[in-house]
């Protein structure tokens, strides 16, 4: 049982949908991103997705790309991202943290070392975009053995024949990518996404969270309503990129969270 499982059990008991917020670690510097992160639970965030910056984020649109560049230019490293998690955990023992990013920085660290450090720091799950089920032996299976959830993306191109393979070795929740495309791109339409979410829910007992292309409280409500919750990333990261004060970023997060929770 991980913090992620506990969170979904609590939300189910309360009859609420989950609101997941993505921020980029170290954007634009460690202090600012830690201040945002610390404010997320009070703003209504149920699960935090913490982006690990990478020079070549192939699945991300310009908003997340430039956020990663800002973080790297600000001196962010995997070591500092883990420090950030420890600092957050010193004050918050409940809110699940999912690290999201690409495989190479983890591979460079060494999978064993990384998993030991991540569990010690208080990470609950991993989303690694460029590790499909075909590469499960790399990180997915060792991560599950270390007690971390390995959360997989299902997409509009994941047909019914392939779905069981994607769901196998997945835990925590399933992240349904609502569009074909990169983060922060076209807007997702609840009517299009609903049958897809139903298809996935018919094949698994895991919660299904919808992400990509959600930018407003109204959209958050619509998309969370047809699933077990929703993720917002680029819309939050964009405000950080514009240099908005932490309080303003968190106000926007609170509005998005209220949207999802009203579903």
């Amino acid at each position: 049982m991980t913090r992620i499982d506990d969170t979904f059990r609590r939300l189910r008991a309360e009859g609420k949908k989950a609101f997941v917020a993505y921020i980029m670690a170290g954007d634009p510097d460690l202090e600012t991103s830690l201040a945002v992160m610390r404010g997320l639970p009070e703003a209504g965030v149920d699960i935090i997705e913490l982006g690990m910056p990478f020079t070549d984020p192939m699945a991300d649109g310009p908003t997340i790309q430039t956020a990663g560049q800002r973080a790297l230019e600000g001196g962010q490293t995997l070591t500092r991202t883990l420090e950030m998690v420890r600092a957050f955990r010193a004050e918050n023992a409940e809110t699940p943290i999912v690290m999201m990013g690409y495989y190479n920085p983890i591979y460079a660290r060494g999978v064993e070392t990384f998993l030991a450090e991540a569990t010690e720091a208080g990470i609950d799950g991993l989303i690694v975009v460029d590790l499909p089920p075909e590469e499960d032996a790399e990180l997915c299976l060792p991560a599950q053995a270390a007690g971390l959830n390995f959360i997989r993306l299902a997409t509009p191109t994941t047909d019914s024949r392939r779905l069981p393979k994607v769901l196998q070795n997945t835990s925590g929740f399933v992240y349904y990518v609502s569009i074909t495309g990169i983060t922060g791109a076209a807007a997702a339409q609840a009517a299009d996404v609903a049958p897809e979410v139903a298809r996935i829910k018919a094949a698994t007992d895991l919660p299904v969270i919808v992400g990509f292309g959600i930018t407003t409280p109204e959209a958050a409500q619509d998309l969370a309503g047809i699933a077990d919750g929703c993720v917002v990333g680029s819309a939050i990261v964009k405000l950080v990129g514009e240099g908005r004060p932490v309080a303003e970023v968190l106000d926007r997060v609170a509005a998005l969270a209220a949207g999802a929770h009203a579903a």
């Binding site: 495989y103 460029d130 089920p133 075909e134 590469e135 299902a154």
Partner: peptide, 20 residues
């Protein structure tokens, strides 16, 4: 069959591209 030459190669892509 995994697209490997020794430890090199493989299919490290996002799920959207995997079926393609």
């Amino acid at each position: 069959e995994q697209g490997r030459f020794g430890i090199f190669g493989g299919r490290f892509v996002s799920e959207t591209l995997m079926p393609l």
